[in-house]
């Protein structure tokens, strides 16, 4: 059944080379945990990606109930967590996943560092990786405000005040993040926009660049 549908499409569009090019490549021995168990450290990049996918999916589903408005935000989160079926689980995935993605990214970065994979010709991928890292921090910071509870409020206040301590530009950055003078209605809407549109867009673009470069250059050699 699946086979004949696939063949029907393949006859017309010749799709086999498309996925072969992406999926069909050998896993070298030194990154295969079946050969050297310690090669499991090479899994952390993939695990980071897996959790990133979960963040994006669970985030999309959360926006079905969430509203970025100072009167309703907390109530909508309370509602989706406690009244909607599986709300606790979907919010839980996004909440704990946000921490886990940082942990995985850190372990992945350690692997890249200690295997020296950042060296030529892969310097650009290190830089892209660093951009991904900062985008992730931005997602964590902007997402934290969204439940609009006390912790959210003060974390954002503290974060923006830290940003405000930057020489010269500080006050402008703070105004930009606050969308005004206080953590308020305008802060919430702009953090929401940044959290669900701007940063995920940037993240997907950077991940694409990351993976295209890996595909082009191959995984780095053994130590």
């Amino acid at each position: 059944m699946f086979k004949s549908v696939y063949n029907w499409i393949d006859e017309r569009l010749d799709i086999t080379p498309l996925w072969r090019d992406v999926a069909d490549h050998e896993v070298p021995e030194h990154v295969n945990p079946a050969h050297h168990f310690s090669a499991f450290v090479y899994c952390f990049g993939g695990l980071t990606f897996f959790i990133t996918v979960i963040q994006i999916l669970s985030g999309m589903f959360l926006t079905m109930y969430y509203v970025p408005d100072i009167i309703n935000a907390y109530a909508s989160v309370d509602y989706l967590q406690h009244k909607v079926a599986f709300g606790q689980i979907v919010r839980g995935m996004h909440h704990f996943g946000a921490s886990l993605v940082i942990v995985m990214m850190f372990l992945h970065t350690l692997r890249v560092f200690f295997t020296g994979s950042y060296k030529a010709p892969r310097e650009m991928n290190w830089v892209v990786g660093m951009l991904i890292f900062f985008i992730m921090l931005g997602l964590g910071f902007t997402g934290y405000l969204l439940p609009w509870d006390n912790k959210a409020y003060y974390a954002t206040k503290v974060g923006v005040e830290i940003a405000a301590s930057v020489p010269v530009l500080g006050p402008y950055i703070a105004d930009f993040l606050y969308g005004g003078d206080i953590v308020g209605a305008q802060t919430l809407t702009r953090f929401f926009a940044i959290h669900v549109f701007f940063l995920p867009g940037a993240l997907i673009a950077m991940l694409a660049a990351h993976f295209i470069m890996i595909r082009k250059q191959g995984i780095s050699g053994p130590l």
């Binding site: 999916l57 669970s58 589903f61 079905m64 989706l80 079926a85 599986f86 689980i89 979907v90 995935m93």
Partner: peptide
């Protein structure tokens, strides 16, 4: 991962 989200939706 996805089934809880679909039930949620």
């Amino acid at each position: 991962a996805v089934l809880p989200m679909v039930r949620f939706a």
